[in-house]
C-alpha cells in the first residue's frame, strides 16, 4: 500500500457513461491484476475505489462508470489534474492456478480489471477466452483491446444487439477451460458461481469506508471466516464463498 500523487494524462469517454482515465505516478505498490486504487476527490469526504485496468511503467489506466457525483467530478477533470491516490489495495487475482486455457468473464464495469489479468495470462503463455457482457451494443467497450491481447473474445448483450443474446452465463455453454476468473455485479457473480464448471476466483464490490482494512465497513462472511473485501478481497476463491441468501 502506498499514498502518493498522480497526474491525469488522459480522460477519454469510451461510451456515454464509461470513461478511461490514465494517470502518471508511482505505480510500484500495484502488484497484481484485480487490485484497486482509492482516489481522494476535492469536496468529498470518502475516497472513490476504482479497479486497476492496466499498468504500463508509471502509467496507470482506470476505467470507471459515471454513477454519481464523485465519478461525474472525475469525468470533468482536465488533463494535468493532480490526484491523491492510495495504491496497491486488495489482494488481486492469483494467476498461479490458471492452467493452460483459463476463462475470464467480465460484466459491465467488471470488464476493466480483466484486461490487465488477460494481458498477464497471455504473457504467461495461457490461451485465454474472454466472455464480456454488456447491457446493449451502445455500452460495449474494450472488445478490440482484448482481441489485440490475443484473447478469443465472446460478447454477450442482454438485449441481443451484439453477440450472444443474454447474460455472460448464456455464453458459457460448450466452452472448455482450465480455470475461471470473473468480476461484475453481484447478481452476475452469483450466476457465474452456479453456471461455471470447476474452480475459479470471483472479485466482489462493496461500499467501503477506508479501502485499506481499518474500518471494517466492507466485511463479508466466508467459509473460511470473516473477510474484509478491501483487504482479504476483493478476490475470493469459489470454494470459500458463502452467499448471504
Amino acid at each position: 500500500m502506498k499514498q502518493s500523487y498522480f497526474t491525469v494524462v488522459e480522460n477519454t469517454p469510451l461510451t456515454d457513461t464509461v470513461v478511461r482515465m490514465r494517470l502518471r505516478g508511482d505505480t510500484s505498490a500495484i502488484t497484481r491484476p484485480g487490485q484497486f486504487v482509492n482516489i481522494r476527490l476535492e469536496g468529498r469526504f470518502l475516497r472513490r475505489p476504482i479497479s486497476v485496468c492496466d499498468v504500463e511503467g508509471d502509467v496507470l489506466t482506470l476505467i470507471y462508470k459515471v454513477v454519481g457525483g464523485g465519478t461525474e467530478q472525475m469525468r470533468q477533470m482536465p488533463v494535468g489534474t493532480q490526484l491523491d491516490l492510495l495504491t496497491g489495495l486488495g489482494n488481486g487475482y492469483d494467476l498461479t492456478e490458471a492452467g493452460p486455457n483459463p476463462l475470464v468473464i467480465g460484466g459491465g464495469v467488471g470488464v476493466p480489471p480483466m484486461y490487465w489479468l488477460t494481458k498477464q495470462l497471455v504473457a504467461a503463455g495461457c490461451k485465454v477466452t474472454a466472455v464480456l457482457g454488456f447491457n446493449n451494443g451502445s455500452e460495449i467497450f474494450y472488445v478490440d483491446e482484448f482481441r489485440a491481447l490475443g484473447a478469443e473474445v465472446i460478447v454477450a448483450t442482454v438485449d441481443g444487439s451484439v453477440g450472444v443474446k443474454g447474460f455472460v452465463t448464456n455464453a458459457l455453454a460448450g466452452l472448455d477451460y482450465s480455470y475461471f476468473y470473473t468480476c461484475g455485479p453481484e447478481p452476475m457473480l452469483k450466476a457465474v458461481y452456479r453456471a461455471a464448471e470447476g474452480e475459479g476466483q470471483l472479485s466482489f464490490e462493496k461500499r467501503m469506508g477506508c479501502g485499506f482494512g481499518a474500518c471494517m465497513g466492507c466485511s463479508c462472511r466466508t467459509i473460511t471466516g470473516n473477510k474484509r473485501i478491501c483487504k482479504e478481497g476483493p478476490v475470493l476463491r469459489k470454494e470459500e464463498i458463502q452467499w448471504d441468501d
Partner: peptide, 12 residues
C-alpha cells in the same frame, strides 16, 4: 460479525 452491509454512507 457486526451489522449487515452496507455499513458506510457518505455525508457532507
Amino acid at each position: 460479525f457486526g451489522n449487515e452491509t452496507p455499513r458506510i454512507a457518505e455525508a457532507p
